[in-house]
Simulated assay, not measured.
Amino acid sequence: MELVIADDAAAAGRLAGGIMADHIRGGAHAIGLATGSSPLGAYRELIRQHRERDLSFQRVQAFLLDEYIGLPPGHPQSYARFIRDEFTAHVDIADDAVHSPDGNAADIPSAAASYERMIATRGPIAVQILGIGGNGHLGFNEPGSSLRSRTRVKTLTPKTRADNARFFDGDLARVPTHVLTQGLGTIGDAGHLLMIATGAAKAEAVAAAVEGPVSAFCPASILQMHPHVTVIVDPPAAAYLKAIDYYHFAFVNKPAWQGF
């Protein structure tokens, strides 16, 4: 695992977007996308490189981590709509190349299994961008999730629903209670896991994920078991890290040939 402490949230987003762009230029045919506020800076950088540096997504398939169950199609807070509005509508990726779990399927377990098969047959995902929840969730794998789990239904914790109520005009009653999410095992199949976390509210979760024990009660700690992980944080999100001096030293002395 490599941990990079960027100067600020904007720099963290630029670095994450640049890493994803390098994968695409290197021939990645499948990428994994996350929603929420953490990846937005990375998506802005990808859009910029598309417009200014001829970065093309025409040969790329994209897979979302998760989706609410029960929101109407096109709902402004659905994750399929979010990723289109914030990213894919601004680059040259085809709409039918952007895939998400079907939270409105008549048979939700079958939809989960179908999405899992799609990732397996159209992948592997070269690079998966990730955020982290304040309670350490990864995707919507809440604390207690199996470290080997696959795409499935999850019940959101009260904390996660409360955190997400801001996207529903502060009305907790409008926040769905269930989601379809890639499992921790599914996420771990990606070749490169790229997690971005910014802000003081993520500091405890970042420290638990990076330096704490590997535990189902901090799902993001599964990153420690993956052979290729980059974690990018800003200074507030790095506040509780114990080895912060080492992370700075390692990055400053990173060999030019090593890359990300």
Rank of each mutant, 00 (worst) to 15 (best):
G17D: 03
G17F: 02
G18F: 00
A21M: 00
A21R: 00
D22E: 15
H23A: 15
I24S: 00
R25K: 06
R25D: 02
G26M: 09
G27Y: 11
G27K: 11
H29G: 15
I31D: 03
G36C: 08
G36H: 08
P39D: 11
P39C: 10
R44L: 06
E45Y: 04
L46M: 12
I47F: 10
I47M: 06
Q49E: 14
Q49L: 15
H50E: 06
H50T: 12
R51E: 15
R51K: 15
D54Y: 11
L55D: 01
L55R: 01
S56D: 09
S56V: 11
F57E: 09
R59H: 15
R59P: 01
Q61S: 12
L64I: 12
L64T: 06
L64R: 04
L65D: 01
L65I: 06
L65K: 00
L65Q: 02
D66K: 02
E67A: 08
G70E: 05
L71E: 06
P72G: 07
P73Y: 05
G74T: 13
G74F: 13
Q77S: 14
Q77E: 15
S78A: 13
Y79N: 04
A80T: 08
A80F: 04
F82V: 03
R84C: 08
D85C: 04
D85E: 15
E86L: 04
E86T: 13
F87A: 04
H90P: 03
V91S: 10
D92I: 09
D92R: 07
I93Q: 00
I93M: 02
A94L: 10
D95G: 03
D95S: 09
V98F: 07
H99K: 05
H99G: 04
S100D: 09
S100V: 15
G103L: 01
G103I: 03
N104V: 12
A105Y: 10
A105F: 04
D107I: 11
D107Y: 11
P109K: 14
S110I: 09
